[in-house]
Design a protein around this nucleic acid. Sequence first.
DNA 1: ACAACGGTTGAACAGCCGTGCAATTAATTT
DNA 2: AAATTAATTGCACGGCTGTTCAACCGTTGT
Lengths: 132, 132
Amino acid sequence: MAQPTERLQRYLEDELGECRSEDVERRLDELGTLEAALGKTRVDAELDVLTALGNRTRYTLVRVLVAAGEELCVCELNAVADVTESGLSHALGRLVEAGLLEGRKDGRWKKYRATDRAITLVTVLEGCVDGE
Amino acid sequence: MAQPTERLQRYLEDELGECRSEDVERRLDELGTLEAALGKTRVDAELDVLTALGNRTRYTLVRVLVAAGEELCVCELNAVADVTESGLSHALGRLVEAGLLEGRKDGRWKKYRATDRAITLVTVLEGCVDGE
DNA sequence: ACAACGGTTGAACAGCCGTGCAATTAATTT
DNA sequence: AAATTAATTGCACGGCTGTTCAACCGTTGT
């Protein structure tokens, strides 16, 4: 949303053959609508999920929990994640916050399992990445 | 992979009632297998995609291009992304590298469109996040 | 050939993010 | 009740990442 509308003007002239300033306005409006249709709240939520997954420690945890197909104890996950117990806890917290894991306290142990959201995302990612 | 195998030992005693050191070995092996099955190369590729998407500028670009359903010129995208032209270029480059966009040079203009991978991921994300 | 334009690239800097340390809470055991 | 254990939390620091600025390349037009 800077002022270089001139470039867009020239581009539209190239594409349409002709271009009045109202054409530029219209195009800008279309693009604005396209962007607005995303919805900031929604994008924020999706970004939260993406950034939660976009880290080796956290992604590995999710992947393992999905693969396990059952809940695992923190002390078990500790053997998987290459971080301090503290770091592990931070990671798990972030993932719960993003709705990718669910935690359950069982006596003095705490167990985590992957949510449907996590399962779906990991499965799709696995499917569409690396077919290459 | 630290030395606190003792905690896992105690946990397994709790779970199984009884636990010999070979049980701990077995569990550690299971967890190791689970982790190894992920495949470092694959995880790396997936992380690359996730970190590429996990940024407001880049994710917005992908979202817009998917919603547009057609290729858009850099000068059009410039109206959408809230960054310098240079920043825009960096973002687009990163997305191409992650296999989320494809670029095509058309005369003096350059156009980008979303790949199938991007379409799939955005669609799924939109579907499983924020139904809440 | 030169100038202008569209877009990219590399370097540099600011701000964020992941991790570890130390202290803390909650549950269990003695 | 005190001590031990499992796990979390706040803080601080180092490193990574996103952005901008400036210089550059390729194409188009004169």
